[in-house]
Write a protein that binds this DNA or RNA. Structure first.
Length: 500
DNA sequence: AAAAAAT
């Protein structure tokens, strides 16, 4: 969410929706939220809505099913949680017995950390109300969660696996859920999550309001999503898959063996106080983190093979500034809100272009500026082409001049206790002394993708027209549709039973 | 070529 002065900087590239009840102004006070919520919003210093909030809140209040697309870091969580909380406060469910405590709103997220964060935000908005907000996810003891659920919660935030555990253990009652939100909806609907998601949805009433939010929506996912929505409305304030304009995106062509060196050099040259370095595999993540540690950087690894305790600690330490470099897999790609993060590195080019958008969305949040560096090897040409097409921006590959010296050892000399964290890492002396013998490297390959307007390909400036959301075509079953979408086989039913 | 999410 943006504060007043920031709001104008990220003016909406509005895609008008015909039935759009645009609020009178961008002030939170103009949409008539319950005073209890307005107070909570004010507590956090917010007065002005972001574009996605201004556009989505009236429709959510009006009870519409929504597919919401807006760039990363523009306040999607508040866009759905404030109006839902408002409705829950206004409409006390008279039929519900006070002895039972049915969940009324369910929010599902793709990672534990994101579920945690979303729950924390919603708790903030609900702070002055009596609504109870809980979060459940795997990797930690189930008992405290069970206890909390049994005492009753109105808003439940969850990751899919643990939620199913609780459902099947009858720890929570979901047959009176009125509102469902899929955060990072395109991820929740992808092949890996879909079976769990479908099972969860099968426990919910058909009659409900469903909200889908993400910064990225492929046309295929949009179509699939329709089958879970009733008379849905597409709310978008930027072309889907758009990257934030306040993030400087650089692409350097480097040799695989030079990548580590390149990160160290750029950290120094750009005087970056902190950065997330994304890698594609858990093993690579652990190795790179260890290597940075040997170079004297304060480093943590964050990936799915770490214990939940370690994961949370790594994230907290990074947020607190006691760690400079967080090496992470795509577990950290989506949704995480790390205030004032100056830079994101793609040590590996992500396999999915969508993940590129989400990764770099960790910087430049709430209108701040950010730097996104992607290291590109010759094997990555196709992936870069995919990204170019997705974000509809021309990608200029640049050479990166590396010193011939070995990766800087001067980092080692920097003691952990000295050197305030705002200071840039110490200069690598060896690197400074030796003249660069390597000539400035040429990009390894030609431009991977040039738009061809005569072939109907979009030009960089012109955003693709918004895709209208139409009704579900009833003759295609969602499962089949997914199989068709991905050209892949769905998990065989036997595979599930085999695991016992 | 992978990661994530239950144990």
């Amino acid at each position: 969410m943006l504060k007043t002065e920031d709001a104008e900087r990220s003016a909406p590239h509005a895609t008008e929706t015909p039935t759009d009840p645009t609020p009178a102004s961008l002030e939170f006070s103009s949409v008539g939220l319950d005073p209890v919520l307005q107070r909570a919003v004010a507590d956090q210093g917010y007065t002005t809505m972001t574009p996605i909030q201004a556009k989505a809140i009236p429709h959510v209040l009006a009870g519409r099913d929504i597919m919401g697309a807006a760039q990363t870091g523009t306040g999607k969580t508040a866009a759905f949680s404030l109006p839902l909380l408002h409705k829950m406060l206004r409409h006390e469910n008279a039929s519900m017995s006070p002895a039972r405590h049915p969940v009324r709103a369910l929010v599902i997220a793709p990672t534990r950390e994101l579920a945690d964060q979303v729950a924390a935000n919603i708790k903030g908005y609900a702070a002055h109300s009596k609504l109870r907000v809980a979060v459940v996810y795997g990797g930690i003891d189930m008992k405290p969660q069970t206890l909390e659920l049994k005492q009753g919660v109105e808003v439940l935030v969850a990751t899919p696996g643990r939620l199913l555990d609780h459902i099947e253990a009858k720890n929570c009652v979901l047959n009176q859920v009125e509102y469902v939100v899929l955060d990072e909806a395109d991820r929740m609907l992808d092949i890996g999550f879909l079976p769990d998601l479908q099972r969860i949805l099968s426990y919910l009433p058909k009659q409900r309001q469903t909200l889908l939010f993400s910064a990225t929506f492929s046309p295929e996912i949009k179509r699939l999503a329709e089958s879970y929505l009733q008379n849905p409305l597409l709310v978008e304030v930027a072309r889907p898959n758009a990257t934030a304009t306040n993030v400087e995106q650089r692409f350097y062509s480097v040799a695989t063996d030079d990548k580590r060196h390149a990160v160290l050099k750029l950290l120094k040259d750009r005087e970056l106080s902190q950065a997330i370095v994304f890698v594609n595999s858990k093993l690579g993540c652990a190795r790179l983190a260890r290597s940075f540690e040997r170079d004297g950087l304060r480093t943590n690894a964050l990936h799915g093979d770490k214990s939940q305790d370690e994961r949370l600690k790594a994230l907290d330490a990074f947020k607190a500034g006691s760690v400079d470099v967080l090496v992470a897999t795509d577990v950290a790609a989506r949704g995480l809100d790390i205030a004032d993060l100056p830079a994101v590195f793609n040590f590996d080019v992500p396999f999915n272009a969508e993940d590129y958008v989400h990764r770099i969305g960790r910087t430049g949040r709430a209108g701040a500026s950010g730097l996104a560096v992607t290291l590109v090897t010759r094997e990555d040409a196709r992936l870069i082409g995919d990204i170019e097409k997705l974000i509809k921006k021309k990608i200029e590959l640049e050479p990166l001049e590396l010193d011939d010296a070995p990766p800087p050892r001067a980092y080692r000399e920097r003691s952990r206790s000295e050197a305030p964290r705002s200071e840039a890492p110490a200069a690598p002396r060896a690197a400074e002394r030796s003249a660069p013998r390597r000539p400035p490297g040429d990009p390894f390959f030609d431009r991977p993708y040039e738009p061809n307007p005569s072939a109907g390909e979009p030009s960089w400036e012109k955003a693709a027209p918004p895709v209208p959301v139409r009704g579900l075509s009833p003759n295609i079953k969602p499962k089949k549709r997914v199989a068709a979408l991905f050209g892949a086989k769905l998990p065989e039913p036997q595979q599930e039973t085999e695991t016992n």
